[in-house]
Simulated assay, not measured.
Amino acid sequence: MPVAWMIGLPAVLAIAVALTWGARHYALRRNLMDQPGERRSHGVATPRGGGIAIVVTLLLAAAVAALAWPAARATLGVFSLGLALVAGIGWWDDHRPLPAIRRLLVHMVAATLLGALVWQASGSLVHAVLAVLFTTSLVNIWNFMDGINGIATSQAILAGLAFAMVMPLPFALAGVVLALACLGFLPFNFPRARIFMGDVGSGALGYAIAALVCLASVVTEINWLLLLVPLSAFLVDAGFTLLSRMLSGQRWMEAHTQHLYQRAIKSGASHTLVTALYFVFGLFSITVFNACSDLQPRWEAAVAGTWMIFATGLWLLLRNGLRN
C-alpha cells in the first residue's frame, strides 16, 4: 500500500471522529434536538445533525482526490456539488422543517447531476435516466430507514466495503473512504445515541451510496441488478412498506413507524439487537454479491432476482409475525 494511503485513510477516520464531536457540541449549543414522540423510536431528547461530519469528510476526501487525479476533477466536482445540495437542504430541514416537495425537488436536481455523469461515462441515456430515478429514491430511502441507533450508518459501511471489493483501484478508494467516514460517526450513534445523523446525513449517505452504485456500473461489468444486492435490506423494507402504505390509502410521505425495523422496536426489541440483525443480513447480502460478481451477466441477474425474492419473503414473514 502506498505511503499516501497509509496516512490518508486513517486521516479520513480521524477527521470524521473530530467533526462528529464538533457537530454534537454545536447541536447542544443551538438546542438542535430530536424530541421523543409517537412517530419516533427513541425515548429521550437527542442532538441531531451529526451527519454533517460524514458529508464534510467526504467533500474533503473528494478535494484531495481531485489534487491526486487531475483528470477526475470535473467528475469529482459534479459529485461534490450534488452531495452538497442534498446535504444542504437536509441541514436546512434539520434547523427549520421544510415541505417535502421542496426537499424532493433539490434531491432531483442533485440526482440529475449524477445522471449526467453516468450519461457522459456510459453514453446511454437510458442508463442515465435510471441513475436519476435510482438516486432520488435512495436519498429518500436512507432517510426513511435512519430511525434507530446505528442502522443507517452500519448499512452504509457494508455497502461501501462491498463496492470497494469489486471495483479496480483507484475507484475502490471511494467505497473505503465512505466506510471510514461512517465508521468515525458510528461510535457517537451506536449502541447509545449521543447524536443523530439528521436529514443532513441520511439523505447525503443515500446520495453517496447511489454514486457508488453508478460508479460500479460504469467501471465494472457487473449486472446492474446484482449491484442492488448489497442494499437489499433497505430496498426491500422501505420499498414494500411504502407500497403497502400507498395501497392502503395512507399519506405515504408522512413520518410513520411501520417499517419492519420500527415494528420490531415497538414489539420490545432493543435498538442494538435490531441493528445487529440488519447488519447480519447485510453481511449475507454482500457475501452473495461478492461471490457472484464474476458470473456471466444473465446469471448475475438470476442471482439478484432470487436474492430479492428471498429477502421479500423473509420481510413478509417477519412483518406478519410482528403484526400478530
Rank of each mutant, 00 (worst) to 15 (best):
L283Q: 06
F279E: 03
G249V: 04
W252K: 07
L260P: 00
V274Q: 09
L260H: 04
L260D: 01
A238C: 10
E254P: 01
G268I: 08
L235C: 04
L243S: 08
Q250W: 00
Q250H: 11
E254S: 14
R263I: 01
D237L: 06
R251H: 12
S270D: 03
H256C: 13
A238S: 15
R263Q: 14
Y261P: 03
S267Y: 06
Q250I: 00
H271V: 01
T272H: 14
W252N: 08
S270L: 09
L273V: 06
A276L: 14
T275Q: 08
T241V: 14
P230G: 01
M253K: 07
L243D: 01
T275F: 09
L273H: 12
V274C: 04
Y261G: 07
G268T: 07
H259I: 00
L283M: 14
S270V: 01
S232F: 02
S270F: 05
I265Q: 08
G268F: 11
I265S: 08
S232Y: 03
S248F: 00
G249S: 12
L273E: 12
T275L: 09
V236M: 11
M246E: 00
L231Q: 04
V280E: 04
L235E: 06
W252D: 07
P230C: 03
T272Y: 11
Q258W: 01
G282E: 06
L242F: 06
A264S: 14
V236C: 12
V236K: 09
L277D: 00
F284R: 04
H259N: 11
Q262E: 08
L231C: 00
F279T: 14
L235P: 01
